[in-house]
Amino acid sequence: MGKAFGRPVRITAAALAAAGALAGCGGDRQVGTAALVGGDRITVTTLSQTVRDWRSQFAKDSVANQMRSNPNDPTGQIGADSGESDVRGALTLLVNFRVAARMARDQGVAVQESQTDAIVSLLDQRGGSGSFTLASGLPRERTRDVARFLATQQLVMRRFGADGNPQSPQTAQAGQNWNQLFRTTADRMHIKINPRYGTFDPARGDIGPVAYRLSSPETGVER
């Protein structure tokens, strides 16, 4: 994304480090829950509508399609590819937003609306903030959520010594610190993912494909 954010960190990096599929049985199951993030519930209805809106909008946005298909553009690294992976990518981002918000509170970082506005403006200069959001795997109405995430990343990395130069050792180290703090924060939030959407891959830091077993997949999230 250039000097505003630095290249060491992407929006899905270090996501959901403590999350995973819930393989057990019994307990207090919340049917209709896609994920639980620190007590905050993301419903299956919300996730499904988000993906439907995204697919409809993305199909009509040629700029977003170009961003997503260009391997040299950072947005090409964001979100998922197609089909079920679209759902996993969207859910990962919705969870990431909540983890970043908690991390900002823990660090005493207050993201002002003006700072979010500045990110939106910058994205508008680089192909359009709405198109960038679509390339990320979310519908246009999530643009400010994406911008707020990036503003949070920018502010926290500055605290870690990022100097605005994506090639500098200081920014690289700040990116590593961000990733580690993101994982630690996610771990404390006791994130739980509905197994129907896949399993957590600690090496990739996102939600991987469903690992089918002989028994039927669970349909709810256990606490």
Rank of each mutant, 00 (worst) to 15 (best):
G2I: 03
G2E: 06
G2Y: 02
K3C: 05
A4Y: 00
P8R: 04
V9P: 00
R10F: 07
A13E: 06
A13W: 06
A15I: 02
A17C: 13
A18E: 03
A18V: 00
G24M: 08
C25N: 06
R29F: 05
V31P: 11
G32P: 15
G32H: 10
T33W: 09
A35E: 04
G38L: 02
G38Q: 01
D40W: 06
R41D: 10
T43F: 13
V44G: 05
V44D: 14
T45G: 15
S48Y: 15
S48Q: 15
R52Y: 12
S56W: 09
S56D: 11
Q57L: 08
D61L: 13
Q66D: 13
S69E: 11
S69K: 11
N70Y: 01
N70E: 09
N72H: 12
D73R: 04
T75H: 12
G76L: 06
Q77F: 07
I78V: 13
G79D: 05
G79T: 00
D81R: 05
E84F: 09
D86V: 11
V87M: 13
R88I: 07
T92F: 01
L93K: 01
L94H: 07
N96T: 09
R98V: 02
A101P: 00
R105K: 13
Q107E: 12
V109D: 05
V109W: 07
E113Q: 08
S114E: 05
Q115P: 04
T116E: 09
T116L: 06
I119F: 12
I119N: 03
D124M: 09
D124R: 11
D124T: 13
D124W: 11
Q125N: 15
Q125R: 15
G127K: 06
S129P: 11
S129L: 10
S129R: 08
G130Q: 12
F132T: 12
T133F: 04
A135K: 01
P139N: 11
R142I: 06
T143C: 14
V146S: 04
A147T: 07
R148C: 10
L150P: 00
A151M: 08
T152P: 02
Q153S: 00
R159Q: 13
A162T: 01
A162Q: 02
A162G: 04
D163N: 09
G164Q: 02
G164M: 04
G164L: 05
S168T: 10
Q170K: 09
A172W: 01
Q173M: 09
A174V: 03
A174L: 06
G175Y: 02
Q176A: 10
Q176Y: 02
N177K: 10
N179Y: 00
N179M: 10
R183M: 07
T184I: 05
T184M: 08
I191T: 01
K192S: 10
I193E: 01
P195A: 01
P195F: 03
P195M: 00
P195R: 04
T199W: 10
T199P: 02
F200A: 04
D201Q: 13
A203E: 14
I207A: 02
P209S: 11
V210Q: 15
Y212F: 15
Y212R: 15
Y212N: 15
Y212M: 15
R213W: 14
S216E: 14
T219D: 13
G220P: 09
R223S: 14
